[in-house]
Design a protein around this nucleic acid. Sequence first.
DNA 1: GTGAAAGCGCTAACAA
DNA 2: TTGTTAGCGCTTTCAC
Lengths: 338, 338
Amino acid sequence: MAVTLRDVAQRAGVSIKTVSNVVHERQYVKDSTREVVQAAIDELGYRPNLSARSLRSGRSGVIGLALPEVRLPYFAELADSVITEAKERGHTVLIEQTGAEVSSERELLRSPRLQLTDGLIFSPLALSQADVGLLDVDYPLVLLGERIFDGPCDHVVMDNVAAARAATAHLIDTGCRRIAVIGAHRDEDQGSAALRLRGYQQALQAAGLPLDEELVAYVGLWHRHDGAEAMRELLASGVEVDGVFGMNDTLALGAMRALQDAGLGIPGDVRVIGFDDLEETRYTAPTLSSVDPGRMEIAQTAVQVLLERIEERLSGTERAPRRQHTTSYRVVSRESSA
Amino acid sequence: MAVTLRDVAQRAGVSIKTVSNVVHERQYVKDSTREVVQAAIDELGYRPNLSARSLRSGRSGVIGLALPEVRLPYFAELADSVITEAKERGHTVLIEQTGAEVSSERELLRSPRLQLTDGLIFSPLALSQADVGLLDVDYPLVLLGERIFDGPCDHVVMDNVAAARAATAHLIDTGCRRIAVIGAHRDEDQGSAALRLRGYQQALQAAGLPLDEELVAYVGLWHRHDGAEAMRELLASGVEVDGVFGMNDTLALGAMRALQDAGLGIPGDVRVIGFDDLEETRYTAPTLSSVDPGRMEIAQTAVQVLLERIEERLSGTERAPRRQHTTSYRVVSRESSA
DNA sequence: GTGAAAGCGCTAACAA
DNA sequence: TTGTTAGCGCTTTCAC
């Protein structure tokens, strides 16, 4: 059925080893031999069996990417960046969706589904510091985001507190005094929600503005629907608002929608800023100010670090200590806060 | 290093075959034996080596999904659906991005990167009928979309012509007489763009409206940017417009943005409908009417058909003839065409 | 420069 | 009901 190295060797009248050498473009092969072998490969349409190669060599060329849901724009863009970067480095990406449930995130780490993967890039949404022990797995793992610190693996993060502080400060600079924040999670102190809330609070304090709990909107998920819902409740509560910081763009877009439904002008009556710098923020009406989290940098760093770990593991090199890699962010001002 | 079947067998004091039987939850294993083996598995933390299993059994449990770019919302949602459906059926998904270039789509089909995949779901954007020969590959392949017909593989399509006709008819029903269409491609007669254009034309003819070439906007890609750009040009040309059919939601959203920038009201001055029914159409201002292409049905059908083919191939069963599977669509009316 | 052969971990046919 | 064993296709020492 499938053409194997042996078939090629037979056809070319050489040993299996020589064919392997040609396939891997190794030196120490006479040019004439190489040509004969290459001809046999082409004629027979030989394609290496990656399962066999993987079994033998211990590496499959596939890396796993675990995230809540690819349909969420932020993760779709992150996946794109990771896939692109991995391809650049000769690897393919297998995607696992965890749906943001703690249980599936925990299971994922021990899942046999990842077995033919050389390593994993994991962006948890629900796991907490208490789960840090689960991260001590026997395969290369790079963690994304700030839900867990001081884990036994490499970690790529953006400074959420500073970025949220900058976003909030941006609204303050443009004159806002009653800034609502949408996307807080109750009883959380490590996740993005908690960190961005902290940044928001720090900015208010730095500006000498009061922290008004009425301006903090708690939500379940960070979907558009939740942002719209939260904004509606905020408006219904009668609390005065002249600025909105959405913990991500999707929430902010939902909030914009609710504000517009209520007949409020953006940025006239209320200024809005989001977080993530999704492509669509450039095309909404009005265009949405946001924080660019440096997605490309995150993806590149994560893939690079992961591949280094994979290499290290295979070559038995002394393991470098696990590191935390911090990437940069940038506030992007658009119409919604002009 | 890694725990193998042999290690478990030794620890449990049974043969490797028995352990395998337990792992595969096969019958004919005494309960007491099963318990002992399970205990050993848990203690040692045994996880099957999928590369070995794959080499031996000829199936990896991984299916490939090739699409232009996951960051495009339609494909992000499609990927989500495919991954979810595949997981449901015990498979994982490896994603390949082709970037909508003919060359990479052609290469993809012969790529060794797909070698440890059991089969492929392929959504081409650039391949044309002329490439039909390339689809005659030696692995299970399911094609999505209508760029190629009568190929040597299964095919899941939605009736683009009928759906576009329905979308256009919807605008006509609400009173539009000068309907622009955005997203046409020059020199194409098989792709979604050509089919949707045909549906648009059929609807106009059926209503006795003239086909005005000035109302057809040609674009390169179907991104938001292209929609905005095309709409701007349309408006600048001075042609009269009271309705817009965007060949996908992204184009329609870009067009909406341009219309709003020009001070036109939606649906007051111009009614708009898109295509794809992206989640965000429910949250834009105004909400966008669209055509629901039955993404879930497409994904389910594609995965099911592919897994059947994989099964067939492995069991050496008589191959059922290649089939075309047509899924259903639905016009969803929202504010932009109310 | 090239060949022979061992074995990666697992599955499944065949034995017991 | 459980054990033995032959490879799946490849990589990789170690000879020649």
